[in-house]
Design a protein around this nucleic acid. Structure first.
Ligand code: FES
Ligand code: FES
Lengths: 133, 133
DNA sequence: TTATACCTGACTAAAATAGTAAGAATAGGG
DNA sequence: CCCTATTCTTACTATTTTAGTCAGGTATAA
């Protein structure tokens, strides 16, 4: 049940952007600062933009910035975007066998508890921390 | 952040054993009932036994039974055993960069919330459910 | 002594992850 | 208008993890 490297990079990028959220920062700069692979990060940023979490500026001096204020973006939203969902279940919410499925009822409880926790953490709550690895 | 098939099988096996927890049930029987691959299940059961969750009986009419009553085994213990840990973190608790690591602080909060949830669910709470898939 | 069932470790195929690489599109500055 | 910095998009590759198989060995009831 580990989180992917991809998600970790994405979270770190979002926190880094939250640190100076009024500036536009390029992928190159971001990748260097946080020592993440540049082209990999490129993909991740693209997904975050498509999901409406980032704004992008093309051309020279271009880059990315948060679409909303760090006090308005939850980590839950970030991770759900990167990971696809916060649910650990292997079958979708459309699974026909859902009713009374024991595994599912456990997995759904996990999801609810994760969601609750992560929807209470905003980017602004994390900007003071270091970003390791 | 999905749970592995292996873990799902293990959970289902534990719940099945909880259903009639006074009987010894063989892997063959268990695999058939819950339609799980027999030799794969064999490995899983072995791990659960080594972790002290199951008792095994060898020879004809042998099989497995829960070591403790269904009212005493939490799903948290089962999943932590199968999955290695309940933490979604990519680096261990010995990571030197832990202090002030933003990603880690988020991941640790997830772990605490999962642990809390799963330590409140006992096998006996799930025996009434069906076991799908 | 034989059949049944657990035990163990090595092996394999398939899927997911973690990247790379290459080029097209866009915009700012000279 | 051209050059360069940057995002955007897609396709590809290598590595790791997962999900399973297989081939034996070991204990025990009958
Ligand atoms: S198998 Fe899909 S909900 Fe249980
Ligand atoms: S990198 Fe290990 S705790 Fe952050």
């Amino acid at each position: 049940m580990r989180v992917s490297q991809r998600t970790e990079y994405g979270v770190r990028a979002m926190i880094a952007l939250a640190r100076d959220f009024d500036e536009v920062i390029s992928i190159k700069e971001l990748a260097e600062r946080e020592s993440m692979p540049e082209t990999f990060l490129e993909q991740i940023m693209s997904d975050l933009r498509k999901a409406g979490l980032l704004k992008s500026v093309r051309g020279p001096n271009g880059g990315f910035k948060l679409k909303d204020a760090p006090s308005e973006i939850t980590i839950g939203r970030v991770i759900a975007t990167l990971e696809g969902s916060l649910s650990p279940a292997r079958c979708g919410s459309d699974c026909s066998k859902q009713d009374g499925c024991s595994t599912r009822s456990v997995l759904d409880r996990i999801e609810r508890s994760i969601t609750e926790t992560l929807d209470g953490i905003y980017l602004k709550d994390l900007v003071g921390d270091l970003a390791h690895e």
